[in-house]
């Protein structure tokens, strides 16, 4: 049988979808509050830096960013197909490249915080 990357891509997609559905609306509200110029207590530099310096905080930030990126990349293919764009190969390449780079950079940046 030919090896397929579908189970891996699918599991990242499903996990990302559930995580995104659970977390993203609330997170958007938090930064929406920031967008209006009010800074929630936990978002000041010292608190956020301490959170990201902690290994558990690193894992949480990494999982949220990476899974949301992979979920979005995978779903972008059907979204753009539905919108009439017939270039799945390029959409897939671009989407997974951004998700892959985002994952790597998330690790790099998080490891710089200590």
């Amino acid at each position: 049988m030919a090896r397929s990357n579908k189970p891996l891509v699918w599991s990242l997609f499903a996990a990302g979808g559930t995580l995104a559905a659970l977390l993203v609306p609330a997170l958007v509200v938090v930064t929406l509050v920031v967008a209006y110029g009010y800074l929630p207590a936990a978002l000041d530099y010292q608190t956020m830096h301490a959170f990201a310096a902690n290994w558990l905080g690193k894992v949480i930030l990494f999982v949220v960013i990476a899974l949301c990126l992979w979920h979005a990349a995978h779903r972008l293919r059907t979204a753009l197909h539905g919108l009439g764009l017939r270039a799945d190969k390029w959409v897939a390449k671009a989407g997974y490249t951004v998700a892959g780079l985002g994952t790597v950079f998330a690790i790099v940046y998080l490891l710089q915080i200590h």
């Binding site: 993203v24 930064t31 539905g82 998080l110």
Partner: peptide, 29 residues
């Protein structure tokens, strides 16, 4: 269906904003 699919663009975009935030955290106050 399409609105749900399009939401992925905003989920991905928001993840990039979070990544940008982490980058800035690493770069200092």
């Amino acid at each position: 269906h399409m609105l749900n699919e399009i939401s992925s663009i905003f989920i991905g975009g928001y993840a990039l904003i979070l990544l940008w935030g982490v980058k800035s955290l690493a770069a200092g106050e």
